[in-house]
Computed example of a mutant assay.
Amino acid sequence: MISRSTKTLKNPIFFRLTHSTFIKNPSFSTLPSSSSSDIPKRLHHKDWLAPNEVLQVFTSLRDPNSVRTALDHYSKRKDYKPNEALYTLVVNKLAQARLFDAIDNVMARIKSESKCRLSDNFFRTVIKAYGNVGGLINKAIETLYDMPNYGCWPSVKTFNFVLHLLVSTKMFDVVHEVYLEAPKLGIEIDACCLNILMKGLCEYGKLDAALKVLDEFPKQRCIPNALTFSTLMHGLCVNEKVDEAFGMLKRMENEGIDPDTITFNILIAGLRKQGRFEEGIKLLEEMRGKGCDPNAGSYQEVLYCFLDAQRFVEAKEFMSWMIPKGVGPSFVSYKALIHGLCKENLVQDVDWVLKQMIRQGFLPKMGMWRQILKSMFSEKSSHCCISYEEIVDN
């Protein structure tokens, strides 16, 4: 087990985080000075307040600006005994009002007072407030690093949340730096952590580095899972390395890891992107043969394969097979199929598709109606003059 040092963590990362870190550029509000009118009447009473009564008082506050004023007044009472539930309520109220400077003040109060022990869940709430609500990624990282100074060490769940936050905000150059801080925070790396790191590298376009992460699993005493391989396969398919993705499929099966629906959907989409439509269609059957049930995404990708291959009659038949299973084709699928059938002057098939489209709640726009009418009244399908691009744009 990694020993946990109680020394303050030094974080050189913050010296180079600039205004680009502020994803949403929130405006900071300065709270007004305390006034007696902002303080709930129950906090003026001399009667002893139980913790649940204090929570009721703060829950009833409608104006977020009065939260800190009330907290200041409560701290002067003899029965002042804050707990995690109260601090969580205060942070959430301030975050909803985007009063992040006030959250800074509350965190400073907590550190200076040391009135109660706070759990990892509380700090994850604060990190979410800074990162998800405020877009203040640097504050989220700083809170993670500062947790030991509050007497609480982060869990791997909280650590992974910060890593995922960095990947989702495309701060790929920072992900690895935070990852390297794991030993100082006493974090034991798990499969989820490595999967997030791998996803970040794939999205950053560093496939070779992402593939090397796979070798880290045994070193960290972790076992890769279906998500691990699906992440790599997606990165390979996006970069048109579909054959390498299928090689990854064989590797995961050799290691006794069963591919899931997402794995197959990624491969079907990859084949479609390369124009290998027949292989994509056949993969749906192989998927069933391996005991993996297709989902709506699976059927939609195969339908796109038929449409991209301009096999419109088969696409219509596949669509008629999808719908009774409760899988609704996308609006783009309907538009592309109607365009193809009109082009081939298959008016009766167009009528069926149009009815299904309307039943599903999609309304054809003017461009599609023009296409259908042209097909109905034209002697030859080649006379149709509305382009596929025009239909999609409409």
Rank of each mutant, 00 (worst) to 15 (best):
M1N: 11
F22P: 00
N25C: 09
S27T: 13
F28Y: 14
F28Q: 05
S29K: 14
D38H: 10
K46V: 07
W48T: 09
L49Y: 11
N52V: 09
E53W: 05
Q56L: 11
V67G: 05
T69F: 02
L89C: 09
V91K: 03
N92D: 04
A102L: 04
M107D: 05
I110W: 02
L118W: 02
R124G: 02
I127N: 06
A129M: 02
A129E: 00
I137D: 00
M147G: 04
P148A: 05
Y150H: 10
W153Y: 15
V156I: 14
F161Y: 15
H164I: 06
S168I: 02
S168C: 08
E177V: 12
K184R: 12
L185P: 03
L201H: 13
A209H: 09
L211R: 15
L211H: 14
L211F: 14
D215N: 09
E216Y: 04
L227P: 00
L227V: 14
M233I: 13
H234T: 10
V238P: 00
D243K: 14
M252F: 00
N254C: 06
E255D: 12
G256Q: 09
G256P: 07
P259D: 07
A269R: 13
Q274L: 15
E278H: 15
K282R: 15
E285I: 14
E286Y: 07
K290W: 07
P294Y: 04
P294C: 08
N295K: 02
Q300D: 13
L303Y: 04
A309S: 15
E317T: 14
F331Q: 11
V332L: 11
K335N: 05
C342I: 09
C342W: 06
V347H: 07
V350R: 03
L354P: 01
K355H: 03
Q356D: 12
M357F: 12
F362D: 03
F362G: 02
W369M: 07
R370V: 11
Q371M: 06
S375W: 07
S378Q: 12
K380I: 06
I386W: 02
S387E: 13
V392R: 11
N394M: 06
